[in-house]
């Protein structure tokens, strides 16, 4: 067995001194810092831990902010938190600098937003998915149950086996709200339908666990389910992989995910976080920011189902027609969609 010193030599060899030289050279190198300055409207965006590339929840928020950047000419800076205790320093860092509007994405930032907003009453804040009762905070809430109801009806209309699935990310009231609306919508179409629901996990990690999402989806498909609605953040990618493997349908969430597996993603339940973020920035820039709760439902197209070239062949005309009818009835107040938030 080689001794420690020999091991070290094996690992580092002569390249060690060269490595150090390179490293020191880098230290000595001076570049230019790229900080854009100006009197423009400055927006700080603090994303949830899923990050901007989750192709779902955060991606939608990021897209809205980027659209504001290109269309409204604002200055945008976005950050992703490393741990739950990091939200507050990041929000505070934005507030301390000359940022005009600070947007937090996800309910995990509720306490941090509340604290920082109260300390910086002259700054404007917005929060997605949770309500903070401060005059300088706008809470952006979505009527997920309404959107999920339509998705449930589409799933039931498309299913041939009479069994549909639901895969939630983290088992929390928000996702239960999706599930309840989805089940109600499906039962409206087919009262005998079986809805099988599973959750990826109980912690934040459940938003970013594609293997577990895939495992659950495969089990559901093998049990006779032929459409699965995945409301699971980045874990939904695993559900889509399972759909591809089993040649069955899946339904996306938050962003339009139809393009990720064309021909297999039946539709996506759009949660227009992008619109909410964009509008908030637009109003902020125009000096029309207001606090309080803004709700986005079917009527305001804050939640909707997606239809584009990627699912045009699978989301058939009669199904769409019936979904649109239900949509109109909900908007008209003729259907009372069960809301998990009100029942618990």
């Amino acid at each position: 067995m080689p001794r420690k010193k020999d091991m070290t030599r094996m690992c580092f060899g002569r390249s060690w001194s060269g490595l150090l030289c390179v490293a020191l050279l880098c230290l000595a190198g001076l570049g230019l810092s790229s900080v854009a300055m100006g009197a423009e409207f400055k927006v700080g965006l603090v994303l949830d831990r899923g990050g901007k590339d989750d192709k779902s929840f955060n991606a939608s928020a990021y897209e809205g902010a980027m659209r504001a950047k290109s269309k409204l000419g604002i200055f945008l800076k976005y950050v992703e938190a490393t741990d739950d205790n990091a939200f507050e320093p990041l929000l505070r860092a934005f507030a301390q600098r000359d940022f005009d509007l600070i947007i937090g994405i996800g309910f995990a930032q509720k306490e941090a937003i509340k604290k920082v907003a109260d300390q910086f009453p002259q700054k404007h804040f917005a929060l997605v998915d949770s309500i903070v009762d401060s005059p300088n905070v706008r809470s952006l809430m979505f009527e997920e149950h309404e959107g999920a109801y339509i998705i449930g009806s589409i799933a039931a209309l498309t299913s041939k086996t009479g069994k549909i699935g639901f895969i939630g990310g983290m088992d929390i009231p928000l996702i239960r709200r999706f599930e309840m609306g989805y089940t109600a919508g499906a039962k409206k179409i087919n009262p005998q339908i079986t809805v099988i629901a599973n959750f990826v996990g109980v912690t934040g990690e459940a938003w970013n666990n594609p293997p577990k999402g895939k495992e659950l989806a495969v089990t559901q498909y093998e049990g006779g389910v032929d459409v699965i609605f995945a409301a699971a953040g980045a874990s939904g990618m695993g559900v889509f992989d399972a759909a591809e493997e089993k040649k069955k349908f899946a339904i996306g969430v938050d962003s339009n995910q139809d393009w990720t597996k064309p021909g297999l993603i039946l539709t996506s339940m759009l949660k227009r976080i992008d619109e909410a973020v964009f509008t908030t920035i637009q109003e902020g820039q125009a000096g029309k920011f207001s606090g309080g709760v803004k709700r986005f439902g079917l009527a305001s197209r804050g939640v909707d189902y997606s239809f584009d070239q990627y699912n045009a062949k699978i989301l058939t005309e009669p199904v769409r027609k019936q979904a649109d009818e239900l949509k109109a009835e909900i908007i008209a107040g003729k259907i009372d969609v069960p809301d998990y938030y009100k029942k618990h």
């Binding site: 490595l19 390179v22 490293a23 020191l24 230290l27 190198g29 001076l30 570049g31 230019l32 810092s33």
Partner: peptide, 22 residues
């Protein structure tokens, strides 16, 4: 120091001046 230097080298490759990062 070595670890920091290596790390700064990585950020340098990513396009950020090591001095600025430090």
């Amino acid at each position: 120091a070595l670890g920091l230097a290596l790390g700064l080298a990585v950020t340098w490759i990513a396009g950020e001046s090591p001095w600025h990062v430090l």
